[in-house]
Design a protein around this nucleic acid. Structure first.
Lengths: 321, 321
DNA sequence: AGGCCGTAGTTAATCGATTACACATGGATG
DNA sequence: CATCCATGTGTAATCGATTAACTACGGCCT
């Protein structure tokens, strides 16, 4: 910057003013400065700028698993929304581990992100408290924590799950296996709560860990226990369950019905196409980014609750109803 | 930091030394400083540190599309490898657009990443030159550019493609449709070059843009033109092609054979399971991160060329051979 | 006792920007 | 013609760390 100033025969203050579009500099000065910038190929140092202004124009996003397309879509949406407001997004991959999540959150805070979006790995509120105590704007995404004091953006699958459960019972299923998320995640608990409320003893619940492998294992157990329908609360575990069903040579929906939370582009391609509860991932991501930006701008955004939709495709024997 | 120093009754220099594990401070001083840090909940400002040390301990990764699981896996691997060396990764999503790619690259450079990993959207070398001119360590990933002067990490699918092509010809296919990537990407061109070399006039090539939609359209055209086999050069376009095949009610492999570049966890679940050319994504990501770190440490890493493997599953009529 | 040295710690410059304040210039005003 | 104000620019402090150069303090040797 000093070089640019010298080249243009002005002070660094003037260069800075030109860069930041202040009213002061004369059109001619501005021209000269811009020419010098161009000629020297100068690019301002964002670190120095941020240090001085205490604003990085960056949002932190800590998600549970980048390989889960559900989160990848969210990340993408967050990024789009942020970019359209001149913000950049730094993504941290917690890998469904509370420790790694904490590490990432701290790293991002150390780098002074202007705000943080978090998909908490567990419903333990301590990390959230820590961030709030630091005064950094925080929005929770997809999952919440106990006694959360910050805005939360998530999808509500109660209606869809209820409709699905009724349908399965109506089709005569009397042993419905539920492959749920970990009991210490809000999504893991809430979704199963809805189901048990509707299904009562008909439901048999096994908790997985939102990973493919746990889906296969849970499916194996449930099938061994005589389940005639499987409801899987996450697409990765759904993938595992599907693998197990195929490995056993079972026919969907004849031998076993299947429904999965989260839609994926390849679900319609299976035979039969898979019935899903689709979450509005893009809208969730965008809404979360908007809420966070609002918070950064001193507003107090409300919680956002979007609805997940039941998409019937055939894997629950819809055709036969 | 000043507060911590005061609290511990030392100077900021001493605090800094404690933080950075310098030899100087006495165990007692160290204790006192650590206590003060603990008590005040002090966390060092990474921006200030980076400004002073001109090192951010951060790698930039600009990829073509986060929603493409191929790149998501790579991103994940890069991140793992980087983290194990104490580096953080900032991901930028170019969305297969050269402009957005350039924007991201510049943003990352402005933030002074220590090095950059790039999956170039086109084979135009100008952006690469710009980065190199800035003296920032750069490694290309998956794709290269014309006259690249930096290390490149990619997968070689020639053998696998050749074997696949021979097999298809051997099975009697005389019109083989190839859905390729854009001709101005190295992967788009090289893969088709291999195929045309082996197949000659038997191959009919349509270029897509690495997105699902273009896969459907290309498949439609090729099928209309009488193709009895499709080779798709990317998993997203493969998804599109599959959709088109299903929409037309064609049976795989009876009516049409199909093979796709990039393996995906759900390919084995289709009926029949899809034959693929699997790229070693994790190894690619790790290797790229390692090369970049080597470059940052002043070494001159070689190009890395990993081999993609043909995985026969049935969608090319393997059972019938 | 005096000189020397190693060690622990302090002072102050520095990284590259932003910005409050001071200053100079020139035109309008009484 | 002196005064005042508006306007454009420069000076220098500042953000929060790191680190070279310096100082103070003991202990050791002769």
């Amino acid at each position: 910057m000093k070089d640019v100033a010298q080249h243009a025969g002005v002070s660094t203050a003037t260069v800075s003013r030109v860069l930041n579009g202040h009213a002061a500099p004369t059109p001619e000065t501005r021209e000269r400065v811009l020419a010098a910038i161009e000629e020297l190929g100068y690019r301002p140092n964002a670190l120095a700028r941020s240090l001085r202004t205490t604003s990085t124009q960056t949002l932190g996003l800590v998600i549970s698993d980048l390989l889960n397309p559900f989160f990848a879509e969210i990340a993408r949406a967050v990024e789009d929304e942020a970019r359209s407001h001149g913000y950049c997004v730094v993504i941290g991959n917690a890998d469904e581990s509370a420790e790694q999540e904490a590490t990432y959150v701290r790293t991002l805070l150390d780098r002074r992100v202007d705000g943080l979006l978090l998909c908490p790995a567990t419903d333990d509120p301590s990390l959230v408290r820590e961030v709030s105590a630091g005064g950094v704007p925080l929005v929770l995404l997809d999952r919440t924590v106990r006694g959360a004091t910050c805005p939360v953006v998530r999808a509500d699958g109660s209606e869809a799950l209820t409709a699905l459960a009724r349908r399965l019972v109506g089709a005569g299923h009397s042993r419905i296996g539920v492959i749920a998320g970990p009991p210490n995640t809000s999504t893991g608990r809430e979704r199963t709560d809805v189901l048990t409320a509707v299904l009562g003893g008909v439901a048999q619940i096994v908790h997985g860990d939102f990973r493919q492998e746990s889906g296969s294992q849970a499916a194996a157990r449930l099938i061994d226990d005589g389940a005639t329908a499987l409801v899987v609360m996450d697409n990765l575990m759904g993938l595992g369950a599907l693998g197990e069903i195929r490995a056993r040579g079972l026919q969907i929906p004849h031998d076993i019905a299947l429904a999965v939370f989260d839609d994926q582009p390849w679900f319609p391609l299976l035979d039969p196409p898979i019935t899903v509860i689709a979450q509005p991932t893009v809208e969730m991501g965008r809404a979360a980014a908007r809420s966070l930006l609002a918070l950064i701008n001193g507003q107090q955004p409300d919680d956002v609750r979007l609805t997940a939709k039941l998409v019937l495709r055939g894997s629950c024997g819809e055709a036969e109803l």
